[in-house]
C-alpha cells in the first residue's frame, strides 16, 4: 500500500483538505439512520424484506465508518490481512446457529 493519506509528512494545511469527507460521512450516517427508522415505521408485511433492508443500510453505515473514520480505505496490508481473517471467523460464528437450528429444528416446534 502507498503511504496513508494522513501520513507524517503531511502539513496541517494539506491535512485540512480531508475534513470535508468527515463531515460528508457524518451527514450520510444521520440520513441513513433516518431512512432505517422511516422504513421500520412502514411496517412492511414481509419481515424478511424488512430485516434485509435494515441490515443492508446498517452495513453501508458500518462501511462508511470503517472506510473513512477508521481510515480503512487507505490502510496497510497487514491490517487488511488481520481483518480478512477476522471476517472469516465472524461469518463462521454467525453461521453456527443455522447448523444448530437445522439439527434441532423439530424440537423448537414442540415435536
Amino acid at each position: 500500500m502507498a503511504e496513508t493519506t494522513h501520513s507524517h509528512s503531511e502539513s496541517p494545511e494539506e491535512f485540512k483538505k480531508h475534513l470535508g469527507k468527515y463531515y460528508a460521512v457524518f451527514v450520510a450516517l444521520i440520513c441513513l439512520t433516518a431512512i432505517t427508522v422511516g422504513v421500520s415505521y412502514l411496517k412492511l408485511e414481509s419481515r424478511g424484506l424488512a430485516i434485509a433492508i435494515a441490515l443492508v443500510i446498517a452495513s453501508v453505515k458500518a462501511g462508511l465508518v470503517a472506510a473513512v473514520f477508521m481510515h480503512l480505505i487507505d490502510e496497510k496490508k497487514v491490517i487488511y490481512a488481520v481483518l480478512i481473517l477476522t471476517a472469516l471467523f465472524f461469518l463462521l460464528v454467525l453461521g453456527l446457529p443455522s447448523l444448530t437450528v437445522y439439527e434441532h429444528g423439530p424440537a423448537f416446534q414442540g415435536q
Partner: peptide, 8 residues
C-alpha cells in the same frame, strides 16, 4: 445493535 434490537 440499533436495528436488530429496536426496529426488527
Amino acid at each position: 445493535l440499533f436495528p436488530s434490537l429496536y426496529l426488527l
